[in-house]
Design a protein around this nucleic acid. Structure first.
Length: 743
DNA sequence: TGGGAGTGCTTTTTT
DNA sequence: AGCACTCCCA
């Protein structure tokens, strides 16, 4: 056998060497999914079953795409850069650049990221005099994207009442605006290339015949449109090889549809369904805990992870009085781990929502422990960088109103709201871009607007410069550099602008097209245009301190795909994790009435809870050697102290796998008595101490079960307490009536 | 034009 | 509580 296939286990080997037919690979966490995917491609190519151009491999993140590429490069003696391996959006961009005319786009079309899209919608609402209270840009974007992800253009969207009709009209107007400006948003990349292939038969044939093997990573995260896109591309007899894990589907909230897995199996009559269940990452106890948790989800394709590694250490569970105490305990534990030889970078602190990082950061900072928080602003999303990019976008395309509006008066050059309004009116009347409208609003010499027009002309004259020099030039001439030099805290921003020049230089070095005298070459247009696409499609993972030995702080969502020797999952409290909004969804207020009521609601609740449980499953399976779970009785959230019950997910971990670091909590209740410092005098009464209860105490009610006292008022025979019963809700109870017992 | 005060929001997020 | 955003005034 080829060395390629060495060290694969039986199901992995079976998956890698499947005949060219459709296949669904159910790959559990840590089961070697990327390995199977890349080895499959390498095997197909090295055995001559397909040539590199015949392969299309899709992932969701740039990181995953790069990982796949570098692994392939190590396995194959060929240049893998020419292969079609990338993200859905990256590949669609590639397709549209190559066939921009057929797709009805200008050659140098620009890509709007989510922030650009929102700005664009906002500008649209303003120009149409639409009340943005009634149609919040954020929500409108969400609506537009959701339609596109269903494959629906405005004309195809059904609307019954005036409000819905208006929304659809705005969708249409937004489309027209984007088309005029020559920009596309993320969802548009997908939809536009889908339509291109669907409507253009020769082109579709071409690609269908070209791609013999289509491979998909993280298939459970695909949305409806992505699945249709795949079906279309594989429609010419290509073998569709989908790898995914329904138990790790945690993005339904943004349109991912696990149902695609079952649909794929049915629609393609998939004969080859292979389960990768041997886990190479975690010790047995951790896997057993994960299996036990996920088993509570009724709708699964079914899978049970196992390992040859020993059972390892027990799962450690810690109960604390407050979020602050929890954080301080973690600090102590991390110090102990360090003494035992663990490096900080191999320890992850996971939490359900970003707000929870504050307490952790506070404790880590005070303890002087280096840490790194993932998920903040990324490089290309920084304001100063976006400003510079906006100038660059105007060089590539003066019609780009989003870019124009962003920098027309930044740095300030005396173009106020008044003159901008006039300009927008003129542009609207003439159906032109803001830039083109300058000449119409007395943009003759002398005015500030004319000065800006002059600036753009000058910048465009420099377009022939090598990209890094062009970027430098733009930063200088636009006045951005001077602006930040004058700013007190501007140094970091200046550094970022310099970093942008570096980014341009390395981009050209790695992916640039040969570019003589500014001529447009290659399928991506020129360097400038492809660099701008790169900036939109890859917001820039790299952050300061990447290589440092620092604790890794992130949400469970961002931890997907990663692994660590030691994992802490903190904030395991009902309401937080599972999140209350997922379990009892608050409806946005614009849904048809019938969707809010009865069975729909509980169905939504189940769906929500199941996704939360998958999230917990993802969190648990990040750990290799040691897993800590922790929860706190009180937590500061949104400026208020909350009293939560332990997460039901804690109860779902089998007792025999657990080592309690604090006295074991009862099912759904607390074990550790509240700290003595927790004597709070209720605001509207002297005290409720005469009743024998105190705030924070866990109590038992005959009907509602276990709960925590979160507030009290009145006194003596009139004493009332507010109790959080978790599932049963939060209730005010009169102590003289309700039969409450200390639990 | 820019800063200070007032207001409202707050799950998860890649591209 | 903290942050982003808006509005208003000097």
């Amino acid at each position: 056998m080829t060395p390629l296939l060495d060290h694969l286990n039986a199901p992995q080997l079976a998956a890698v060497t499947l005949p060219p037919a459709h296949a669904l690979i159910l790959a559990g966490a840590g089961s070697g999914k990327t390995r199977v995917l890349t080895t499959r491609i390498a095997w197909l190519i090295s055995t001559g079953q397909v040539s590199p151009p015949g392969v299309l491999a899709v992932t969701f993140t740039n990181k995953a795409a790069k990982e796949m590429q570098s692994r392939l490069a190590a396995m194959l003696p060929i240049n893998v850069r020419g292969m079609w391996i990338g993200t859905f959006h990256g590949l669609c961009n590639r397709l549209l650049r190559a066939h921009y005319r057929d797709a009805g786009l200008p050659q140098l079309f620009q890509i709007l990221d989510s922030a650009d899209q929102q700005a664009s919608v906002k500008r649209l609402l303003k120009s149409l005099n639409v009340d943005d209270e009634k149609f919040p840009p954020r929500e409108l974007c969400h609506f537009i994207n959701a339609q596109k992800e269903q494959g629906l253009r405005a004309a195809a969207v059904e609307a019954w009442d005036d409000w819905a009709k208006k929304r659809v009209a705005l969708y249409e107007a937004y489309e027209a605006q984007c088309q005029r400006e020559g920009v596309v948003d993320f969802a548009e990349l997908l939809l536009r290339s889908y339509e291109l292939l669907e409507r253009n038969e020769p082109l579709r044939r071409h690609y269908q015949e070209r791609f013999r093997h289509v491979l998909v990573d993280e298939f459970q995260d695909t949305n409806k449109l992505q699945y249709r896109w795949l079906k279309l591309l594989a429609g010419g007899g290509a073998a569709l090889f989908c790898v995914g894990d329904d138990d790790q589907s945690i993005y339904a909230f943004r349109g991912a549809d696990v149902g695609n897995m079952a649909d794929f199996e049915r629609e393609f009559k998939v004969q080859n369904l292979i389960r990768l269940e041997q886990n190479y990452r975690s010790h047995g106890n951790i896997l057993d805990a994960a299996n036990a948790i996920i088993k509570n989800n009724p709708s699964r394709l079914g899978k049970n992870l196992w390992t040859e590694a020993g059972s390892g250490e027990p799962i450690r569970i810690y109960e604390s009085y407050s979020d602050g105490d929890e954080a301080r305990w973690i600090v102590e534990e991390v110090r102990a781990l360090q003494r035992d030889g663990h490096t900080r970078a191999e320890i992850a602190l996971l939490y359900r929502s970003n707000a929870q990082s504050r307490a952790l950061e506070h404790a880590l900072f005070n303890a002087g422990l280096p840490y790194r928080v993932y998920g903040g602003l990324r490089f290309f999303e920084r304001a100063e960088v976006k400003h510079a990019l906006a100038y660059l976008r105007l060089i590539a395309n003066t019609e780009d109103d989003t870019a124009f509006a962003r920098v027309v008066n930044f740095p300030a050059r005396g173009i106020g709201a008044r003159s901008l309004e006039n300009l927008q009116d003129a542009a609207k009347a003439a159906g032109s871009s803001l830039h083109a409208a300058i000449s119409q609003v007395g943009g003759k010499g002398g005015t500030s607007l004319a000065g800006f027009a002059q600036l753009i002309v000058k910048l465009r004259e420099a377009a022939h410069l090598p990209l890094p020099e062009l970027v430098d030039h733009v930063i200088e001439l636009s006045g951005l550099r001077a602006h930040y030099q004058n700013e007190k805290e501007g140094q970091e921003r200046l550094d970022n602008l310099d970093e942008l020049i570096n980014a341009a230089a390395s981009f050209v070095a790695e992916e640039g097209t040969p570019n003589q005298d500014g001529e447009i070459t290659g399928e991506f247009g020129n360097d400038l245009s492809s660099f701008l696409a790169h900036a939109s499609l890859e917001a820039g993972e790299h952050q300061a301190g990447e290589g440092d030995d620092a604790l890794q702080l992130m949400t469970v969502h961002s931890a997907k795909g990663l692994e660590f020797n030691v994992v802490f999952i903190s904030g395991l409290e009902d309401g937080l994790f599972p999140h209350e909004n997922a379990v009892s969804p608050r409806f946005g207020g614009h849904l048809p009435a019938q969707q809010v009521g009865g069975s729909q609601n509980s169905m939504n609740e189940d769906k929500g809870l199941e996704e939360e449980r998958r999230l917990m499953y993802v969190a648990v399976t990040r750990a290799r050697q040691r897993l800590y779970l922790s929860f706190a009785q009180t937590r500061m959230l949104h400026g208020q102290t909350r009293y939560n019950l332990p997460s039901r997910f804690v109860d779902e971990v089998p007792e025999e796998l657990v080592k309690w670091l604090t006295p074991r909590a009862g099912k759904g209740g607390f074990a550790v008595p509240s700290a003595p410092t927790f004597q709070r005098t209720p605001r509207r009464s002297e005290s409720s101490s005469g009743s024998g209860f105190r705030i924070g105490q866990t109590v038992m009610h005959a009907k509602f079960g276990l709960g925590v006292i979160i507030n009290a008022e009145g006194g003596g025979s009139d004493a009332r307490v507010q109790v959080n019963f978790g599932n049963a809700g939060i209730k005010w109870l009169a102590l003289s009536v309700a039969k409450l017992e200390a639990a």
